[in-house]
């Protein structure tokens, strides 16, 4: 796929800032000894609300969910920012964000304790970020701008 320089610049820009966001979200959770996904899970609602709430009831599982969230966010963030294994990072990011969206879908009639900083009807910022990742998956850039350039040289030749 050929992009103009401008197209490439903004696609990489989008990838990098989403990576930044993931990386920071992961790191703040890592350094906060009190952080746990328990509150977020218990606050779940919507069609899958019971499922997400039940995850919070197994302490061992919760421990893994916390670790997976923290290191998942960090790895995805770094991957997107540096263009390292971007495809994998994008898919993982889409899966992770989808769980966030599905546990707290802004459907009509649902209310959450989780404070939000905006007003949402079906669409929230998580959904927008998820779709942005889908777009980046369809318009890859890391094999040009990113460490993937060193790994996947043959494919792009």
């Amino acid at each position: 796929m050929r992009y103009s320089n401008t197209q490439l610049f903004w696609l990489v820009g989008l990838r990098v800032i989403i990576g930044w966001h993931f990386l920071y979200e992961g790191l703040v959770k890592l350094i906060n000894p009190n952080w746990s996904s328990v509150g977020f899970l218990l606050d779940s609602d919507g069609p899958l609300g019971d499922f997400f709430q039940s995850l919070a009831t197994y302490p061992d599982l919760l421990h893994w969910i916390d670790l997976l969230n923290i290191w998942g966010l960090i790895a995805i963030g770094a991957g997107l920012m540096l263009g390292f294994l971007s495809r994998m990072a994008l898919v993982a990011g889409i899966v992770l964000l989808s769980t966030y969206y599905l546990s707290h879908p802004p459907f009509i009639g649902l209310k959450y304790a989780m404070p939000t900083e905006g007003s949402y009807l079906l669409v929230n910022k998580i959904l927008i970020e998820t779709i942005a990742l889908v777009v980046l998956l369809l318009f890859p850039t890391s094999h040009r701008i990113g460490i993937d350039r060193f790994i996947f040289t043959e494919k792009e030749a």
Binding site: V16, W20, Y24, M81, L82, G83, I145, G146, R149, F150
Partner: peptide, 12 residues
């Protein structure tokens, strides 16, 4: 090009 975004990581 491969390391073009590394400065962003530095800013981060």
């Amino acid at each position: 090009k491969g390391l073009a975004t590394l400065p962003v990581a530095g800013v981060f």
